[in-house]
Amino acid sequence: MNVKPTCYFEASARTRIAKLVDPDSFSELCPPHLRHSSPHLARLNAPVAFDDGVMVGRALLAGHPVLIAGQEGKFNGGAVGEVHGAKLCGLLERALSERPAAVLLLVDSGGVRLHEANAGLIAISELMRAVLRTEEAGIPVFALIGGSCGAFGGMGIVTLLCTEVVISEQGRIGLSGPEVIETVKGVDEFDSRDRALVWRITGGKLRRVLGDATRLVDDDIASFRAATAELLGKHAERRLPASDLAALTEEHEQLSARARRYDTARDGRIVFEEAGFTELESVALMPVDDFNRHLEGTP
């Protein structure tokens, strides 16, 4: 049949996991039939999900054992509540004893679930700590981003703590979402309907140029799988070094320098220009392979 490869952007979290890992290798922890759903949503008479919008489990990817979590963006925008957060933290805690090749977080989330704000905020801070602890133990944590919700709010922060960030062009990383900024600061500050602007500021290509993302891939699950497999191979060869103070200080200095450099930038254009992309209109349409080749050719 003349069908296109399965699109990552549109797939459900379950489809993403099923097609990302080795066939039939996924086994789910806390599966939906156990009905770990949100007590807060139930109290508000809001619809609940039996997996609270996230599935966690173990699987093989190109033969490497991994722990994997997938957020369902179509349930409350993938937002993190108490149970949802606990499942993610529990998975990272399990990594310390199981020692998989990596923990894969398929992030698709607007951030904290407002219905259970305090519990959600605590969950995010626990999650940040758990990611750092896992990496400290020499186990890399990968974020995969290519869903419609992107990685925003607390999940934007968690994503930037990860060892590797694989993103598609449709994927986005940010803190406050464009609609939130427009609501709070006005349309002159950020026109959330100007989709091209939104993507030039938060989208996958910009995040890759800035170095926030370590791989840019096509929007299909097979491409995410190929990039993840390649990174698993890389980390299997070279164990993650325990982060030391000197390395952290250096990274902070680099980030401060970047913040100063783009302090007055109103748009991602300048970042693309500095990366040597001369025709800005064509950046958006440039195939991912060409884009990556161009980027790797730049010093």
Binding site: A196, W199, K205, A284, L285
Partner: peptide, 21 residues
């Protein structure tokens, strides 16, 4: 919409509120 732009060889230029790239 982007798939349509690509299918057109970049000749189709959609109004900006239809873009997501």
């Amino acid at each position: 919409i982007k798939d349509l732009v690509l299918a057109s060889g970049g000749l189709y230029n959609p109004p900006k509120h239809f873009r997501n790239w």
